[in-house]
Amino acid sequence: MIGARTAQANFCRGELGPQLYGRFDVDAWGTALRKARNVIVLKYGGIAKRPGTELVAEVLDPTQPVRLVPFQFSLSQTYALELGQGYMSPCAGGGRILEEELAITAISNASQALVEVAYHGFAVGDRFYISGCAGDMGALLNGRAWTVVAVTDASHFRIDADTRAVAPFAGCSGGTTRSAPPVAPAAPVVPPVNPAPTRPAIYFGGSGQFGGKAWY
């Protein structure tokens, strides 16, 4: 018996399920793949290698399960939503979507590093993402989100980072320096919960146990 090979140029049906492996009589069988790994099916029928991935940042809470959910707002706006325990952090354009970038003027060498940021506006438990720091301090802190463990004053707070073993702070680029405390956003107005509607009573006439009327 002599086997034969036939060229296939159309893969628009993607990957076949196990139930269709032997169903060569189905139209989808001739325009699909049994296994498609690390490829993207193009809308014109061809396939292309899947592009590589890039480490954007460490998840905010690696101690809990985290799920990445793709979200497409429009044809030109796409996001990756990091859904963790009690939080959601959107990522786009190769990084996290953050609040205003603030300038760091000093970081101490301590078991819980003291960070100096003018009028930071943070509270205990807030997450603080650091980037742009130079030297050994930057190698330890950059690209990670740290938790505010204590607030000393309007321009100083401590984070859960042990910086005792690295060289002193050598500067940090980027960010703006505030000259006044930030204006706290107004709390959203939550409408009251509407009471459940009262179910109307329906009755019909006739003789019966309740004087000819049945109520529901």
Rank of each mutant, 00 (worst) to 15 (best):
V117F: 03
L98S: 08
V39K: 11
E15A: 13
V66D: 04
R67S: 13
L55G: 03
Q77N: 11
L81G: 11
A48F: 02
E82A: 04
V26Q: 10
V39T: 08
Y87D: 12
F73G: 02
A36P: 01
V115C: 04
A80W: 12
P62R: 07
I107S: 02
K35Y: 12
V117E: 00
D25L: 05
T78W: 08
S76Q: 12
I104E: 03
F71M: 13
C12F: 09
L114N: 06
E116L: 07
L102F: 04
F24S: 13
K35V: 11
Y21M: 04
S108R: 06
R13K: 14
R23A: 01
V41E: 07
P18Y: 05
R96F: 00
R34I: 14
V115M: 03
F71Y: 15
D61W: 01
G30D: 14
A103R: 15
A113C: 09
R50V: 06
G52H: 09
L102H: 02
A32I: 02
A36N: 09
E58R: 15
A36M: 11
G95E: 11
E58D: 10
L20D: 15
V26Y: 07
R34H: 08
G93V: 04
E99H: 09
I107R: 01
R23H: 05
L75I: 03
T31I: 14
A110G: 04
R50S: 10
R34P: 03
V117H: 02
I104L: 07
Q77I: 02
Q64H: 09
A28E: 13
V66E: 04
Y21R: 10
I107E: 04
V56M: 09
G86D: 12
D25K: 06
I40H: 15
Y21E: 10
V59C: 06
W29P: 04
C12Q: 10
I97T: 10
A92N: 07
P65S: 02
L55I: 15
E58W: 05
A57T: 14
L68D: 04
S111N: 08
L20H: 10
Q72Y: 01
A106L: 05
I47P: 01
A110Y: 01
R23F: 00
L81I: 15
S89V: 13
M88W: 00
D61F: 00
E58N: 12
V117C: 09
P51Y: 00
R37E: 15
G93K: 05
P70M: 08
G46V: 03
Q19H: 07
G17R: 15
V39E: 04
P62D: 02
P65F: 01
S111R: 12
G45E: 08
S108T: 15
